[in-house]
Write a protein that binds this DNA or RNA. Structure first.
Lengths: 414, 414
DNA sequence: GTTTTTTGTCAAAATTCTTGACAAAGTTGG
DNA sequence: CCAACTTTGTCAAGAATTTTGACAAAAAAC
């Protein structure tokens, strides 16, 4: 049944919409797709697909690739994105790490690097670090900034998309209303797309990760902060003001510990990176044996440190992570009851934790969400590991670039 | 920017989509709308709107009404739905009440009635009561079942839309997988649309209530159960399997009281109708004075009883409701952090409670949700009072009816 | 009363899809 | 090994629906 109210389609948009649908389907189909299958998947006729594909071929956005098919009739000509059309960069600023990668137009990662980082150092310091790392990587590839068609940037806070800044971010002291996008565009002279790290993680996992092409995907990023990205019906869900997905500030325990957001009992204050580190420290003070006691004094313990210790068999680390997993499970159970996703992808530091974290999480979810929703949900770790958000940033930047190239010399209304 | 991936538009759909957009915009614009404004709002030209409107006029779905405009030029001819095209019924089965109403095609309520009810009596008893009440109302209007174009029915459980039944509903014992829609269609010989009561409440409040035409609306239905309906971008959001919005089973207190769903600490177990009644009973046993002690022994106390007592100044009732409001506020704060809606409409029994309930709720929300989301959200009681869901059911049934009439003799692909 | 403004309509042009036919390029089976 | 079959991709003609541009209609403003 027709279920969306009040949506219209001026004719000028039709070809454009179909062209983009074709382009996106080519982008997101691994191994290429034929004209015939494009037609079938998009409910168009083969005859309608041909001129659209011709247009994209002419712009050199896509290319024909030779088939290795096994069916009956004439073998299809597979279409794929022209990887060498240009380059895209993806940046993911976490609370305690920075990931930068450079990919070609087929979203294949050419180079990537993750370094330590401290978001609380503020925009001036952090953006310089981002800039340096990006230029280093470009250098190593023998490229310059002008080779980049666009740059996607993820940050761990609520985004005001039009303004290109974050609004009242709980874990980004000093960044409130700082014009991140404008500053980076001025520095680089290239289009920059700012996004929330969890949203971009959702996009990344939807496009190339564990939740490929799922209708309703939730991505949970575990780190110092805990954020959710919601991907619904082929779109990032941002809510009224772009701050949807703040699962980290869901109340888990009414009178729980104080949170950076000013409230009490938030998930983040119970199971976020800082809380995990604090619990390990408490265990150390209680005299329990853990390799984490040996960390250099000056350096702050991150959740990644704890994850690594747990992986090496450290019992204290495992215990703390299991507890955190159960708490995150409570929040995810609520999310599942509210959102009823097909799939929940848990990423960020969780991708390094494995079952120590995921098993208690899964068990809690199964216990605490309604069967109607929990029976149909898959809960898994991020296929892209710690790179979900950086890859999502790339996907978003690439969408802009492809969009503009495909649009060139074509009108569009609203 | 173009932000939805992989959506195509076969040509045959275009006119149909535009026709529906026109029809819906006429439906949902109070006082009528002119062709010129339709064109502007839908990004079409006036010349394109004319034939669409002509088509709808010819089918007698809409009519021209004479203007009382005050602008400069030629006065517009306002268009509105033809109210007398036919009739629609809306049914809302709550846990402890049943509402049935009959409306014309303009969704004007012609007659309505609310009666006591017990969903736990099971399908056989309940559907007979629904049937009786519907026939009574039809009778009073001098109508028969054959005058109804469609009937919308809301129930308090997770819906499997295709099957027309509920799946593992926590507060509908005996209804699991009972073919509700088919049973009613067989009984009435008319098309029946089954929906979740909270979803339909959201639709009702979006169409004709407190949240008219908002982009992101959440409706919270307070009763024995507590459910949320999410209305996003002109659509009910149902999630992967149609069970989105089960806020009543969000965990509020890890080791809280047992819930009917089998879990502990659910919102519903703390602030649902049963919990509220239990708290009042506890106060009575403690010897506190309340008019609710005078309720007839055999009859179960409903949340509506408590609301009425509170409105008459009963202190115990007020206290219990204030506490419930604060707990619901915790859940709504989490919902706001996750969903970032424009507006949260609180309905069901809450529409009778007023500020006793809403003030603690609002305060808790403001305290427990992030500023980025809470600054932009409006929290209000249902404008349609206890009728939100029944009216939503009407709107949905009407959509089907209008849709079919407008579609008649026109092709459609996928 | 003329000018201005806005609404609604019409015919011609434009756009983009579908229909139906067909060539191309393989596989299958006797 | 060749004919029959199957599927893909393309083409020209036709169809559907919108836009463009012009204009009549209806009321307010000057």
């Amino acid at each position: 049944m027709f279920s969306t109210y009040i949506r219209s389609i001026p004719t000028q948009n039709v070809k454009y919409i179909n062209k983009h649908a074709v382009l996106d389907l080519i982008r997101f189909t691994p191994g290429g797709i034929s004209r015939a299958e494009l037609a079938e998947r998009l409910s168009l006729t083969r005859a309608a697909v041909t001129p659209i594909v011709d247009d994209l071929l002419e712009r050199r956005l896509i290319q024909e690739t030779h088939n290795r098919s096994s069916v009956n009739g004439r073998p299809p000509i597979l279409l794929e994105i022209n990887p060498d059309y240009g380059y895209i960069a993806g940046v993911d600023m976490g609370a305690a790490h920075l990931t930068v990668l450079i990919a070609n137009f087929a979203a294949q990662v050419l180079i990537e690097r993750e370094v330590g980082f401290e978001i609380a150092d503020g925009p001036a310091v952090c953006l310089r670090q981002v800039d340096e790392l990006l230029r280093t990587l470009l250098n190593e590839l023998g490229l310059g900034l002008s080779d980049l068609a666009a740059i996607g940037v993820g940050v761990p806070g609520p985004i005001v998309a039009e303004a290109g800044m974050v609004l009242a971010p709980p874990i980004m002291p000093g960044w409130d209303r700082f014009p991140i996008r404008d500053a980076l565009e001025a520095r680089w002279g290239r289009p920059v797309l700012l996004g929330n790290d969890a949203e971009l993680g959702a996009l990344g996992e939807w496009a190339y990760g564990a939740g490929r092409m799922e209708q309703n995907l939730a991505y949970i990023k575990i780190g110092r902060g805990i954020g959710a990205g919601l991907f619904i019906d082929g779109q990032i869900y941002r809510g009224a003001t772009g701050s949807a997905g703040e699962i980290g500030h869901m109340t888990i325990r009414e009178d729980g510990p104080a949170c950076t957001c000013g409230n009490r009992g938030c998930l983040e204050a119970i199971a976020g990176g800082r809380a995990v580190a604090a619990k390990v420290m408490a265990a150390i003070r209680c005299g329990r044996r853990t390799e984490l006691a040996a960390l250099p004094e000056g350096e702050k313990m991150t959740i990644a440190d704890v994850a690594e210790a747990a992986a090496r068999g450290d019992l204290v680390a495992q215990e703390v992570l299991a507890e955190a997993g159960a708490h995150v499970g409570i929040a995810i159970a609520s999310l599942i009851n509210l959102f009823n996703p097909n799939i929940v992808v848990v990423g960020g530091a969780a991708s390094k934790m494995g079952d120590v974290f995921m098993e208690p999480l899964r068990q809690t979810v199964m216990k605490r969400s309604l069967p109607a929703a929990s029976q149909s949900v898959r809960i898994t770790t991020a296929l892209l590991g710690g790179r979900s958000s950086a890859i999502g940033a790339t996907v978003q930047a690439l969408s802009l670039a492809l969009h503009e190239i495909a649009l060139d010399r074509e009108g569009l209304r609203v």
